[in-house]
């Protein structure tokens, strides 16, 4: 029983990270009908920005002295990484996606794959392919409850994910920018006619999604111990599947999907075979797309001629 609970807790913490990344996919897809393949690399860059920022703030010296990294500095690391990724997300949209926005739908998709490859290979060049240990911007403390081990890092993951999710919900439902985003996602041209600056709204969407991915990147680094330039590929795909599972374009759906994927992956790895932990994600994707393509929380939209 304690083993099962342990797997569930680990699965949910992994799932929370997927959820954070999935939000970016779901928001962009909701607005542009584009699978932003480069999102997984934005996540990677976010993790690396956090890595270097913590390094610049002298985390190594503190660790050697046995001192904990102060909380306010940890927040600085988080903010810098989120800011840098937001900028990167906006740049990608401006330079690569905007020029092909009116092209047939496959053109942006291939462009996105190209940007993803480009960032991955640039990452290998700049960050080197060697896996790096993530600096402990939160000093790990362990608790044991009836044979189940929970760390403060895992608790932080739940708290940060929940906080960001609520913030996003507020932003989308209660602010002007959010209203504009929803309008653009329903119909871009009509939104334009209503005087919404669609270019700015799309940029805002990319900025927010990318910032969330960066937060996910830092939490991922803390949870998974190492990062490498290829960390985004599979994680990003799983997060995308989470977005589809929850219903693409649907924000609570992305969260539900993320948690379910994390859980499914961990349980398959623990009780079936770790060899199929990646396969299960794809199996879920295929099954959901065939049985309920609109996802768990999505709504059906009829395509017209």
């Amino acid at each position: 029983m304690s083993q099962f609970l342990q797997q569930v807790i680990n699965g949910l913490s992994l799932g929370s990270i997927y959820a954070l990344i999935a939000l970016g996919y779901t928001m962009v897809y909701g607005i542009l009908k584009l699978i932003n393949f480069a999102h997984s690399e934005v996540f990677m860059v976010g993790a690396y920005t956090g890595f270097y920022t913590a390094g610049a703030l002298g985390i190594e010296g503190m660790e050697q002295r046995g001192a904990a990294f102060p909380l306010y500095l940890a927040l600085v690391v988080l903010m810098v990484a989120m800011g840098a990724s937001a900028l990167l997300g906006v740049l990608i949209e401006r330079l690569a996606y905007r020029p092909v926005r009116s092209a047939p739908r496959l053109t942006p998709l291939i462009t996105a794959i190209g940007v993803s490859l480009l960032l991955q290979n640039l990452g290998m060049l700049v960050f080197t392919p060697n896996p790096r240990r993530y600096p402990p911007i939160i000093k790990e403390v362990r608790f044991e409850l009836g044979g189940v081990i929970v760390t403060n890092v895992k608790l932080t993951i739940f708290v940060v994910t929940l906080a960001l999710m609520l913030g996003l919900w507020y932003l989308v439902q209660r602010t002007w920018t959010g209203r504009a985003m929803r309008a653009v996602s329903v119909n871009l041209d009509a939104a334009k006619l209503m005087g919404i600056d669609t270019g700015r709204t799309i940029s805002a969407t990319f900025a927010i999604g990318s910032a969330l991915a960066a937060a996910g990147g830092i939490l991922f680094g803390l949870d998974q111990i190492t990062i490498n330039p290829l960390m985004g590929t599979l994680t990003g795909l799983k997060a995308f599947v989470a977005a589809v599972l929850g219903g693409i374009g649907n924000i609570p759906g992305a969260v539900v999907g993320g948690l379910l994927i994390g859980l499914a992956e961990q349980l398959v790895a623990g009780y079936v075979s770790p060899d199929y932990r990646d396969a299960i994600t794809f199996v879920i994707l295929i099954v959901i797309l065939i049985l309920r393509p609109e996802g768990i929380l999505g709504v059906v939209r009829q395509e017209k001629v």
């Binding site: 584009l34 739908r105 990646d278 295929i286 797309l289 065939i290």
Partner: peptide
């Protein structure tokens, strides 16, 4: 047969999934 009911991006991502599953099967 199952995938081609889907269109565009969804089909793309499902074929990607199948491609990976096939590779994982050979790997095991």
């Amino acid at each position: 047969v199952p995938s081609l009911r889907l269109k565009g991006d969804y089909l793309a991502i499902v074929t990607l999934g199948f491609g990976e599953i096939i590779r994982l099967l050979f790997n095991n």
